[in-house]
């Protein structure tokens, strides 16, 4: 399984990346939203985990663009953010997000369990 994490916080990428790699999941990371879109189009991951508050381009705009491009529109995108659900959950759903997870409630183990429970997990 291949997972792309797009988050401007390097520590978050390292933390979640380490946990998922230990479970033999191929982890791709990007600290920039625009580069993340290009990476998604090129690498075609099974799942994208996307932060919202990022410089240059925010996660909701990244989500919008991912859902427009043919190469990426069918990849499930889960928002992984510290903004509360009531702030952006509705908007994320409208834009086609598959789920909304608050980082402070999703420890690496819980995130791993979530990824492993997804339908296209071939592990």
């Amino acid at each position: 399984m291949k997972v792309l994490i797009i988050d401007d916080e390097e520590t978050i990428l390292k933390m979640y990346g380490t946990k998922l790699s230990m479970a033999k999941i191929e982890v791709l990371t990007s600290e920039d939203g625009q580069k993340g879109i290009e990476m998604a189009a090129k690498e075609k991951p099974d799942v994208i985990l996307l932060d919202i508050i990022m410089p240059n381009i925010n996660g909701l705009d990244v989500l919008k663009m991912l859902k427009i491009r043919d190469e990426t529109k069918n990849i499930p995108v889960y928002l992984l953010t510290n903004l509360p659900q009531e702030a952006s959950g509705e908007k994320a759903k409208e834009l086609g997000a598959a789920g909304y997870m608050v980082k402070a409630e999703f420890e690496p183990q819980k995130l791993l369990e979530k990824i492993q429970s997804l339908p296209n997990n071939d592990q």
Binding site: T18, M22, I53, V102, K103, P108
Partner: peptide
């Protein structure tokens, strides 16, 4: 309220995340 939530949760998620990994021997 939204920004306060974000700013409080950002360091918390890292503390919680890494301490959980240390606790279960991942590191």
């Amino acid at each position: 309220i939204t920004l306060t939530s974000h700013q409080l949760n950002t360091p918390l998620s890292i503390i919680r995340g890494y301490s959980s990994m240390l606790e279960c021997g991942d590191l």
